[in-house]
Amino acid sequence: MKSEGLLPIGDIHQCGGEALPASMSSSLIAAAHELKSPLVLIRQLIFAAQDDRYSEAERTRLLTQASLIADRGLRLTTDLTRTALLERSLFVTEPINAQQLCEQIVREMAPLYEQYGRTITLSASRHTSSIVLAHRELLSSVVYHFADNALHYGDDTGPVKVSLRMHPSRGNLQIHVRDYGPRLSLQDWRAARAASRALPTRPHASGLGLSIAEQFSRAMGGSIGLTRHRDGATFYIELPLSQQLSLL
């Protein structure tokens, strides 16, 4: 007899009569879990903003936080929709300046990091040009998910660092996002890439962001990778350098 309380994840897809494929159900659970967190937070921020005991300045801060958290949830929803369209849609790659794109993402994410008392920095590129073949929105999303993971699943022992590494001999460029926090197990990493699922070493991370990043990078002819450190992790995306470098 099963308890009515916690259900093992493997059992959930068997509930409600018609069975869902296990992979689909785990993705749905991961998506639901990942979207629930920002909603829970927004709800509490709104309760607080309605409380007369907060000053006007504090209420403004609370609403700013709610807005930034809502943006995060919306981005995730948009990207989830996009993953469903990847096979049917053609995402044309074009030469993209990776350095400029990363500057833009760091600029956009800085206010959210600030609300958490954290910082995100971009190392200045030593390369005169960092043009990759990519789809602008997909690449933005990949870097965004890496940076979002670093914010929510790392700790505050150091700033999150975004950097670029060019490998001309291999004809590619890597965008790195270094975080500080619990060491990610290899088993978690492999599972997260294959399909979104909870990561025991970073339990709030459903793996959904990494799963989206994996799918988006493949759609652009790239790949994602991980370097594990004692005090955190570096997630990276590797993309082909544009052959039009000489023209730009």
């Binding site: 916690l6 259900l7 629930k36 909603l39 829970v40 509490q44 309760f47 607080a48």
Partner: peptide, 26 residues
């Protein structure tokens, strides 16, 4: 927590109350 937990199952660990983060008011 927003995870569904049955109080009966965790009471032996000293848990006296469960507050559902998803539906709670402060």
């Amino acid at each position: 927590s927003s995870v569904a937990i049955d109080l009966k199952e965790v009471a032996i660990y000293g848990v006296k109350r469960i507050v559902d983060k998803a539906t709670m008011h402060p």
